[in-house]
Amino acid sequence: MAEIRTPHYHNSGGYPAIRVGAREFMCIGAAPPYDHPHIFLDMGGDNEIVCSYCSTLYRYSSELPSGSADPIDCVWAADAAHAL
Rank of each mutant, 00 (worst) to 15 (best):
E48R: 15
D42F: 14
I72N: 02
A69E: 06
I49M: 06
C54A: 06
A31W: 04
I39F: 01
S62L: 10
P37G: 06
Y9L: 06
H38Y: 04
S61A: 12
A78T: 04
M26L: 09
N47L: 11
A83K: 12
W76S: 07
A81R: 15
P37D: 12
H38S: 04
I72S: 11
L41S: 14
P37L: 11
H8V: 00
P7Y: 05
N47T: 04
N11M: 05
L57N: 09
T56I: 10
D73K: 02
H10R: 11
C54V: 02
G13R: 10
Y53S: 13
C51D: 07
A2K: 07
G44Q: 06
L84A: 11
A78Q: 12
E3S: 07
A77Q: 12
I72H: 08
A77C: 12
W76K: 07
Y34R: 07
P32N: 07
P71E: 15
P37E: 15
L64W: 04
H82Q: 07
S68Q: 13
I28T: 08
D70I: 00
P32K: 10
S52N: 07
G29P: 00
A77E: 15
H10G: 01
P65H: 04
P71F: 03
T56S: 11
W76D: 08
I4P: 01
G45I: 02
G45C: 04
Y53R: 09
C74E: 01
P16F: 10
V75S: 00
A2V: 09
Y9E: 01
M26D: 15
D35S: 13
M26P: 08
I28N: 07
S68L: 14
Y34V: 07
G21V: 12
S66C: 10
E3L: 13
E3H: 10
V50G: 08
I4E: 15
G45T: 03
T6I: 14
E24A: 15
D35E: 14
A77V: 14
P7E: 14
